[in-house]
Design a protein around this nucleic acid. Structure first.
Lengths: 181, 181
DNA sequence: AGTGCCATGTAAGTAGTTACATGATTAC
DNA sequence: GTAATCATGTAACTACTTACATGGCACT
């Protein structure tokens, strides 16, 4: 049920419509949780049904019209309860590492190109996070809320740095293997 | 469709029964892809239906009896095609980072204890991977297959190292925040 | 009137999780 | 004979993905 709680957090930070949430998930919220607009609209419906959020009053009917949501006290309570809950880290899933392992069995084929492509993507993501850090925390973080947000952002940065470093190593290794024939 | 291809890879490495696969997923295959026995049995059924694998001939009927599978040529072809396929890295999902962000809005509560718990779990995982490296690659890796496997294992190790380092930092940061009140 | 974008949704399919059921074999 | 473990499965549910539908508004 992480998506529901990600949305509650985002709405506490700032009341938003579905599409605005979608955009924020593509940006800052999404360092560690992504979601499509379809998922978000569905979840907003559920959260409203559960009494955790409500649409801000607006005259116009429904379709094609913006609907802004805010968190209700029950929603805040739910989020507090969720934060306190213990949950084991999930083993991660990365299809690319799987591909490499498969390649060990059936041949590397075009995999080197794919390594280079991923390396490029991760470098871009790393640069994006670093931009955000420079823009939003030019002098470090001050308040309690900001310090935690910076902590999470730094996790994203270090994660991307890990991928870049590892992929660089993988490139060298695969080049050698290809060279050997 | 990554699970199917993870299974094909595992079966190429060594023909196995469903339960054996489950165990291997808990170990080496599972650095980057985990699966329960329910998922695996379901997928084995599909793969057999598709003609990618077959059960090794065995006299006894079905339930409660071990069934070993091996990869058929069509399965190998399918795996080769999959390895060559380009696929963007998926943005990662980590509920704990989400929790931290939520805590920035509604208060940290018992979160410090949870950081310590996760830190412990990741340290154990890191030690496990390092054990595997020492046991399976005492003198580095030699053959092409082994070098790739070691490369993937090292990714697991570096990933855990990242979590340990980051969680240590998070602990310090949260202690300070708690201290301030 | 047509194009493009903002905005909210529906529907169908795939993948993963959780809980439970059942038979076979071994050890006591 | 009964408990533990090995082994294979079913069923129901939840979450995520992909493709498509529809309406409103601004610009030309």
């Amino acid at each position: 049920m992480s998506l529901a709680h990600a949305i509650l957090t985002a709405l506490l930070e700032k009341p938003s419509s579905g599409l605005e949430l979608t955009r924020r998930f593509d940006m800052s919220i999404g360092y560690f949780w992504s979601a499509t607009h379809q998922q978000i609209y569905r979840e907003l419906g559920k959260l409203e049904g559960a009494g955790f959020i409500r649409a801000l009053p607006q005259d116009v009917p429904t379709r094609g019209q913006k609907r802004e949501y805010e968190v209700l006290p029950a929603g805040r309570e739910e989020l507090i309860a969720w934060v306190a809950k213990a949950e084991d880290p999930k083993p991660l899933r990365d299809a690319f590492a799987l591909r490499l392992r498969a390649a060990a069995m059936v041949g590397t084929g075009e995999l080197l190109g794919e390594v280079e492509r991923h390396l490029g993507l991760h470098r871009v993501q790393l640069a994006t996070y670093q931009e955000i850090e420079k823009r939003d925390f030019p002098a470090g973080a001050d308040g309690r809320e900001e310090r935690i947000q910076l902590l999470v952002l730094r996790a994203g940065i270090e994660m991307e740095r890990f991928w870049v470093t590892w992929l660089e190593g993988a490139m060298v290794e695969l080049r050698e293997l290809d060279g050997q024939g």
